[in-house]
Design a protein around this nucleic acid. Structure first.
Length: 630
RNA sequence: GCCGCCGUAGCUUAGCCCGGUAGAGCGGCUGAUUUGUAAUCAGCAGGUCAGGGGUCCAAAUCCCUUCGGCGGCUCCA
């Protein structure tokens, strides 16, 4: 409901003609009120779901205003033009009548209401003081409340019937309280996350400063919270990660598709799904239709699969999309840096399978894919903790399978079991990164979903000619791309706190090699070495640049080190005459000693050839670059 | 979303408690310097002290409020 409140010297109207086929019946054709709070009212679609609540909340708002202004006359005035999403005339009329009645119970007010469904001439004199014109939007919480209570009870139910264990890689299953966490501190933090007492000094996660100082990402005050800006270096890193995950999924057999980012709230299949989780997504209006921004890639792929003709021979059928972006309106208090966002990039690969046997086979293939993807990105099993979630029944029937997953992981995992299935999936795992503030964030995940094949009416024709609903596996091989960057930065922050040198993985470092001339006399030599390095292969890219600024060599090296650049090469007389370079390598494992350019090229490529090859999206010369931060 | 803390130049910050013309370093610009592995020197420009309101002769400083950030709680399909 939309309200426009005007503190007026007087308000006066005169009924003219019918505006709708069946307007309210009237006997009095005009009205006037002095010293009145005039309330223009538009009853909207959202009010239809909870008209009683809408009336109550609107009355609250009006009374509050009347008290503030110390007025005792109130004129209710139906005004359709305040909204582009009006309720039906019937409900609109009812709500206004009820609102009038409700206000009469709230105190000694003189209430008048102009009739509904008529064109009226009106005159109003607005007082014009700061508080004299106000608008209010009432979204009745009745609907949301009842659904909220539903999910609340769902949650309660889950808590009551949820059991927590630690499953060791050797197959022993222990109650969480009985497990000895010695040597598994992060698993303990993860497992007891909710019970952890807050420490004396909690500070912001270190990646927030790093994402800014490395010119990766930053807050964008002009947008909503949790919608970040990415500078060229951050965009490059995201792009490399996105492309890497996509290539791995395509190798696995994923068919990459693209689907819309917004969907109709009234679509029959989607609205059922949405109703369970009210007020968690962005909504946008276009003409009279309401859309929500997708919070996952599922919809588009499921709707596509619904329309496809699928044979059992096509299974497992793997659809993939990398969403830029998915949107979730997470609670504002939960948004910090890149850990949790409201707009995020999410690779999402679904596999449709014929039965549970195929589901489990596929599950293992994808499990190995996830571990390999994270490992190659630079996040190993040392950095993550695993959670498995399933029903008691499934666990009992598939013990060996479950132990096999823990065994492959190589260390104990958290196992949550329910008496009966509560969610749409029967088995799920996640890999969680635990940061220095002891917060756990999920990266890779996969689930066996046994409901949505039916809900979306996705069918395949089986050997026997019968159409059946597939089970669907939902997997993100890396988790949100932004969260991967968060994890990588947090990992390096831990190194810094231990006095070690931080560095991004070589393949993700924006600048991999920096040339520094001893004096500007050697600038042409830098250019020569650089172009030789870049020309050696048309397929493999080494991202190099040249610090041509008029600064001391020491200062340039210091700044290159602050940028975490893996290889720094100073060019002077020695290099000019020998034709070889002696890179300053950031870490011992990056090599050392003297190289010809061809050798150095081979040396770097050997470490980056399995990854996407992308050029540096910045000017070659440092003198040509702006500072995006600091 | 709730509670608490914070917001001074592009960045990092002094000044705030106890009201009286806002200081610095980095970065930028200009000039000098031509440098061999973590900061060369000098000068100049740059501030509605987050926005709005209030108290006061006078507000960066005290009060209220909005916005943004952080921490905790909650939440995380």
């Amino acid at each position: 409901m939309k309200l426009l409140l005007i503190h007026s010297d007087f308000i006066e109207y005169e009924v003219k003609e019918k505006a709708i086929p069946q307007p309210e019946e009237i006997t009095v054709k005009s009205g006037r009120l002095e010293e009145a709070l005039t309330v223009f009212v538009a009853v909207e679609k959202v009010d239809e779901k909870a008209p009683v609540q809408a009336v109550k909340e609107a009355a609250d708002a009006i009374v509050k205003m009347a008290e503030q202004l110390k007025v005792c006359n109130i004129m209710l005035y139906p005004y359709a033009h305040l909204s582009s999403s009006l309720a039906s005339a019937k409900v609109g009329k009812e709500v206004l009548v009820n609102l009038e009645a409700e206000l009469k119970t709230r105190g000694a007010y003189t209430i008048k209401r102009s009739p509904f469904g008529w064109y009226k001439a009106f005159t109003i004199k607005c007082k014009g003081h700061p508080l004299s014109e106000l608008s209010r939007e009432i979204v009745p919480t009745g609907e949301a409340k009842s659904s909220g209570e539903e999910t609340e009870s769902l949650k309660q139910e889950r808590k009551l019937s949820s059991y927590w264990y630690i499953l060791s890689e050797n197959g022993t299953l222990q109650e969480i309280d009985a497990f000895n966490f010695q040597g598994h501190e992060n698993l303990k933090k993860f497992a007891f996350y909710e019970k952890e007492k807050s420490r004396a000094v909690k500070q912001e996660p270190p990646h927030v400063k790093l994402m800014k100082s490395l010119e990766i990402a930053d807050y964008e005050p002009a947008s909503d919270a949790g919608n970040m800006r990415f500078y060229p270096k951050g965009r490059l890193m995201k792009s490399l990660l996105e492309e890497y995950v996509t290539e791995r999924v395509i190798d696995y057999g994923g068919m990459e598709v693209e689907t819309p980012i917004m969907y109709d709230m009234d679509h029959p299949t989607l609205s059922k799904y949405l109703a369970r989780f009210p007020a968690r997504q962005y909504q946008i209006e276009s003409d009279k239709r309401k859309f929500f921004l997708r919070f996952a890639a599922c919809f588009g792929q499921f709707l596509m699969a619904h329309d496809a003709t699928i044979s059992y021979k096509d299974l497992p059928l793997k659809l993939y999309e990398l969403t830029r972006y998915s949107f979730r309106r997470e609670q504002s208090g939960e948004l910090t840096g890149l850990r949790r966002l409201r707009a995020f990039t999410m690779p999402d690969v679904h596999a449709m399978v014929s039965d549970m046997d195929m589901a489990m086979d596929e599950f293992v293939i994808r499990y190995n894919l996830c571990l390999s993807v994270l490992d190659n990105i630079g996040i190993t099993t040392d950095d993550i903790e695993m959670a498995l979630r399933t029903t008691k029944d499934f666990y009992e029937k598939n013990k060996a399978f479950m132990v096999g997953l823990a065994k492959k992981f190589g260390k104990p995992v958290l196992l949550e079991m329910w008496d009966e299935r509560i969610f749409y999936f029967i088995l799920k795992y996640e890999f969680n990164f635990v940061d220095t503030s002891d917060k756990a964030s999920a990266l890779s995940t996969d689930q066996i979903d046994i409901e949505n094949g039916e809900r979306y009416d996705i069918t395949f024709t089986d050997k026997d000619g019968v159409r059946k609903h597939p089970y669907i596996l939902h997997c993100s091989p890396s988790g949100a791309i932004e969260r991967v960057i968060y994890a990588l930065l947090e990992k390096e922050a831990i190194k810094i706190s231990k006095g070690q040198k931080p560095m991004l993985p070589l393949w993700l470092s924006p600048t991999q090699v920096r040339f520094i001339p001893v004096t500007d006399e050697f600038l042409p030599d830098c250019e020569r070495f650089n172009s030789e390095l870049t020309m050696l292969s048309p397929y493999y890219v080494i991202r190099s640049d040249i610090d041509d600024r008029e600064e001391s060599v020491s200062k340039k090296i210091r700044e290159a080190e602050k940028e975490w650049i893996p290889y720094i090469i100073v060019i002077g007389d020695r290099e000019r005459s020998s034709g070889t370079v002696t890179p300053r390598c950031r870490l011992p494992e990056l090599g050392g000693g003297e190289y010809t350019i061809a050798q150095f090229h081979e040396h770097v490529i050997a470490r980056t050839r399995i990854y996407p090859q992308k050029k540096l999206p910045l000017p070659l010369y440092l003198s040509k670059r702006p500072k995006f931060t600091g």
